[in-house]
């Protein structure tokens, strides 16, 4: 399917470049509907990859690229059956989102996340599946999960560990602080820094360059350069599921979901 327009995301193929746009209010929170549509995208990508060279993932939402997992949906789903019984559901969700992330990570196409604004949690993890991250200067990256008693669950730690030094990973993860695009470029996370609202344009310039290369050579180079850390990814799911049943998570998520403060609950 070359073109698709869905509830949470859409894609189109333009001159061999697949553009996947996220567009769920307010900031592309990833819940079951987004997961289903991402799975649909992966199936379409498998059909389109032979005639494509580049994949660009971007957001049409003003607030940012993606604020991560839909914590309200997660909290309400787990509350209904009880947090202590929720592990199988959480594990199923994680297995499915990992399959999506692994498919994008191992795509033979050259993949670019063109990001802006809030790129948090699962959104950061989605960007990390891409070969290149182009960020506008208003982008903020963050793994806030420890502030809720969790670790990132969509493959973030193994991918960040693969791509950057472990000290940088510890800084971002253990403090839960967000970093801006300039800092992210300084540590090697961001490939190209864009002016405000210009990251997609820069990604398209790069797609036009990538198109000139032999597709099989690009794919071979990528396979050589970018191994998928399957062992660590599976371990991450186990740790996340173990932590999820701890009382601190339920309490943290409840405070976050129920907060009406201008600054939502995050310790």
């Amino acid at each position: 399917m070359e073109n698709y327009s869905g509830e949470t995301l859409s894609w189109e193929m333009i001159d061999g470049c697949i553009e996947l746009a996220l567009h769920r209010e307010p900031c592309n929170e990833i819940g079951l509907k987004t997961l289903e549509e991402l799975e649909g995208f992966v199936a379409a990508h498998n059909e389109l990859k032979e005639e494509s060279h580049t994949l660009i993932i971007h957001s049409r939402m003003k607030a940012g690229f993606c604020a991560g997992a839909d914590l309200r949906e997660l909290y309400l789903g787990a509350s209904q059956i009880g947090f202590s019984n929720a592990e199988p559901q959480v594990r199923d969700f994680l297995n499915r989102i990992h399959a999506v992330m692994n498919a994008i990570d191992s795509s033979p196409l050259t993949t670019i996340a063109a990001v802006h604004g809030v790129t948090f949690g699962g959104g950061f993890e989605l960007a990390l599946t891409c070969d290149l991250i182009f960020a506008d200067k208003m982008t903020r990256f963050c793994f806030p999960e420890l502030r809720l008693g969790l670790i990132p669950g969509f493959g973030g730690i193994p991918r960040l560990n693969r791509d950057l030094g472990n000290a940088v990973v510890r800084d971002i993860l253990l403090t839960g602080r967000s970093i801006n695009a300039t800092k992210a470029q300084n540590v090697g996370l961001v490939s190209q820094l864009a002016a405000e609202n210009e990251s997609l344009k820069l990604a398209r310039f790069t797609a036009a360059q990538v198109k000139k290369f032999d597709r099989k050579t690009s794919a071979a180079a990528k396979r050589f350069l970018k191994p998928i850390p399957y062992g660590e990814l599976n371990k991450e799911i186990d740790i996340f599921c173990h932590l999820f049943t701890e009382p601190a998570v339920e309490a943290g998520l409840r405070k976050f979901v129920e907060s009406t403060d201008a600054q939502p609950y995050l310790p």
């Binding site: 307010p26 607030a63 604004g117 809030v118 903020r140 967000s178 201008a262 600054q263």
Partner: peptide, 10 residues
């Protein structure tokens, strides 16, 4: 709101 506060921070 909190998202715009992040924008201010940046």
């Amino acid at each position: 709101d909190s998202l715009q506060a992040l924008e201010l921070l940046t």
